[in-house]
Structure formats: C-alpha cells, structure tokens
Amino acid sequence: MARSALSLSNVHAYYGDSHVLHGVSLNLGEGRLLGLLGRNGAGKSTCMNVTVGLVQMRGGAIEVFGDSIGKCQPEVMSSRGIALVPQGRRIFRSLTVRENLAVAARKPARDAKAPWNVERVFDMFPRLRERKNQNAGSLSGGEQQMLAIGRAMMTNPRVLLMDEPSEGLAPQIVAEVGRIIARLKGEGLSIILVEQNIKLTLELADDVAIINTGEVVFAGTPAALQADESIIAQHLGVF
C-alpha cells in the first residue's frame, strides 16, 4: 500500500446552516490518481474547497503526507504542496497568460526531479506560449483550462486537485486534457480528479470514490466499479 499523500477523515462542512459534507473520508495514495465521481451538487467541489482551505471544515481531520493540518488556510495548504485546478478554471482574467503563471511560481522541493517554471509550462502547452502576452480573459475555454493547469503546476505541488477539468470542453480538447493528466501522473504526482465524465475517469484512475449527497457511497478500484453496474446506476444516474 502506497504512503498516503492526502487523507480526509470524517470531514463535515456547512454553508451557513446547510450541512453539505456528512463525514467524508477519502484517501489518496502517493503517486496515485483518485477519481472522485458524483452527481451535480453531491459535494465534490466542497471536498476540494475544504482541502485547500477555501471552506472551513467543522469536524474531521485532514492529513498531508502524514502531517495533520490544524486550520486549513489557503496559503498554508499551498505551501504544503497542494494545488488546485478549480472548477470553472478561475484564471486571473485581467492578467496576461505569462503573469498568471508567474504569480503562482513557488520554489520546488529540494528533491524535485523536474521543477516547473514558465518555460516548462509553455513546453507542455505550446499554445499558451503563442498567447503569452495576451490577457487571460481573451483565451478560449480549452486554453483557459490549460492555463489553470499550468498555473497550478507553477506552485510545484506534490498533490494536484483537479475539479472537473473536462467540463464544457470539446471532445478533442477533453482527450488532450486526459493525456496531460496521464503525463503528470507519470511524473509521480498524486492527483485527485473530480469528474462527471465517467469514461475519462475510469481510464485514468487507480482508485475511484463516489460521493452522493455529502457521503462517500463507494470506494474501490475502477474494475470493481465497472463490475457492478448497479452502483453506477444508483449513484451516478446513468441508466
């Protein structure tokens, strides 16, 4: 069993009075890719937002590489090596492409094999290099998604959280994003991939979890999930 890169134990979260996460536990092994599936409004993004400190959990614990985190503040989680590719991309629209990358730059850990910098992001996404001085708000949806991934990589993370990176993209762009994710995983990054695209997730994931109305209702391997059509039908609404 791989060492744990990130674990959520019995996490509860609220928006005001509405109880959204009811004791969620997830475990991401080092170097693995955990696919997190669930219907609209199931609580997937909330799990990500709790992990990066955008939403404060009320009860539960989060550990990063075995260290338990007291109060998750965004800057702290970032310095612990957690990066987010947020749902809806949320790039800095009034900044240029290059500035979007530059502001997120962080020195890599000393043992990092291939540290990320602007040039390396441009090598991975040549289209961003062509548009480097353009305002990020003027990019197409696919380019914005690539920028959001590049920006997250600029922090030289150890854990990458990707919240619906295929949302709203044309099929060939989705395939490209899938190849990028596979490549990042190949470099040893630990990844949580939140998706509604079941096919993409099952192709990429080592482990899968399904969340439904704020509770984890399935955790296992892609093979186990595929073997049991009823789980997919019941929790993901594919009939």
């Binding site: 955008l54 987010l84 947020p86 949320r90 800095f92 530059a102 962080r106």
Partner: peptide, 23 residues
Amino acid sequence: TRLGAMIRAGVDDAPMARVMGIQ
C-alpha cells in the same frame, strides 16, 4: 513587476490567489 501582478491577481480573485500561495 511580479509583485504588481500578484496584487492584481488578488483583485481579480482573492480566494483563488490565496490558493495559489499569494499572501
């Protein structure tokens, strides 16, 4: 400058800037 860009990033989307480690 990068510092200026960080300020502008904070103006664009403060929570996301913090997630990227910007103080």
